[in-house]
Write a protein that binds this DNA or RNA. Sequence first.
DNA 1: CGGCACCTTGAACTTTATCAACCCCGGTGG
DNA 2: CCACCGGGGTTGATAAAGTTCAAGGTGCCG
Lengths: 245, 245
Amino acid sequence: MSATRSCMVRQFQYYADLSEADIELLDSLEYSPEKLPPERVVWREGGSANELAVLSEGWACSYYTLEDGSRLILDIYLPGDVIGLREFATSEHLATVETITECTLCRFPHHHLTDIFAKSFRLTRVFFAVATTQQSILVERMINLGRRKASSRIAHFLCEMHARLGRMNEHMGNQFRLPLSQEMLADIMGLSSVHVSRTFSQLYDDHLVERSRHNIRIPDMDRLIEHAGFSNSYLGRQSIIRDRA
Amino acid sequence: MSATRSCMVRQFQYYADLSEADIELLDSLEYSPEKLPPERVVWREGGSANELAVLSEGWACSYYTLEDGSRLILDIYLPGDVIGLREFATSEHLATVETITECTLCRFPHHHLTDIFAKSFRLTRVFFAVATTQQSILVERMINLGRRKASSRIAHFLCEMHARLGRMNEHMGNQFRLPLSQEMLADIMGLSSVHVSRTFSQLYDDHLVERSRHNIRIPDMDRLIEHAGFSNSYLGRQSIIRDRA
DNA sequence: CGGCACCTTGAACTTTATCAACCCCGGTGG
DNA sequence: CCACCGGGGTTGATAAAGTTCAAGGTGCCG
């Protein structure tokens, strides 16, 4: 058992205990680490989709650009996340994937995933759990976009980030770094960057969020959760996958 | 090979050729058909999630109700759709599922799905494809909610329904039944029902959509697609899953 | 020290929501 | 067979939320 365990393994172990063989299988996906500078395109919308990637370090995102030039960011990827799962059923990339900070990522071809399906029943279920958790994250974001007002959208997004980051590093406390410009935040939340700025000021006035540059501090997590209508159950349940009987 | 083939099998065959054994395995999920009247709750948000369902006949939907009483409809389920895949990684239902029209549906426990993972490599991949296609549908709807104006949202939704219905029954032509009230349409698209009404009138004035009661006619599909910014590639690619080499 | 990217603020405007009245139509009971 | 009832759809007036444009500020990097 190696001392340095990949983020993906850590993330997957959240859903199930993994055997040594499973861990080796997973690790084998990260065989080709690639270092990328900030704002580098990983793959572009429309390109043919025969690979996935694991993000080992850094932040990345996927986005979709509309005819009129406006943009929506679909996912924020953190270390340990699998990128491109959604495009498994499609032969071309539906969205552009781009690094946000400096990143290390490992691409691997589509069929390595199906090889895993063939080799490990347990990992199959965990991959399924990961894919469906990604779906739940999208659903929460849909609710954000469809039915919440700006201040709740931002509050909800901050809660989500806090929860997802906290899952990877315990004792994170009530502050964290959020390396996103207000324009990116706007494109995540379907708002204009101007309105994001105003709304942040308003959250500050209400003592819900403090922020300096890219650091976020949350003075009272409970009040923020309340304001956001946040529930973390959608992020998946720990050790959900067990052997039956 | 039986003459009456279930909708789910038809839907799955879209992604891959299935062996007789696979078809039997799939059919075995639909062992407990249940007839439900319109507007009957299948399961409720918060209830413990240890089952999935296949919709054999009728229309159903899932929705999520916010603290303030507003609602967002997350999915519209058509015959052949699998309901509850998203909650595979979670131990409780995140959304309420309810019939829209009279429905026939077959519930089955969670572990029947994992049994299939153990028994059929090919079906595993198809289930994965189905789950990821559902994700892509959510993403398109996210873009709708986040970045399109009301008339494009409605146009896009109509395009999606047209495409999904057309996949199940060829020669559908340019009209179809849409058994949804304007209030439901509003909750799908994150608008108020009043605004849906106004927007429909506007689409009618622009000769993009005709509608009487629950029947929709689309005089010029290409113009509607154009107006919606619709691309059907997100609905998954036919026969994407093949044996390698 | 200067420049540039990003953030902030203000003012005018657009889109959508809300409220309320009305209408249309289908179903029911007299 | 007709009058009434009720739910959903439509319309208008007004309000709220968010966008756009433009100008100015702030802080970081060379």
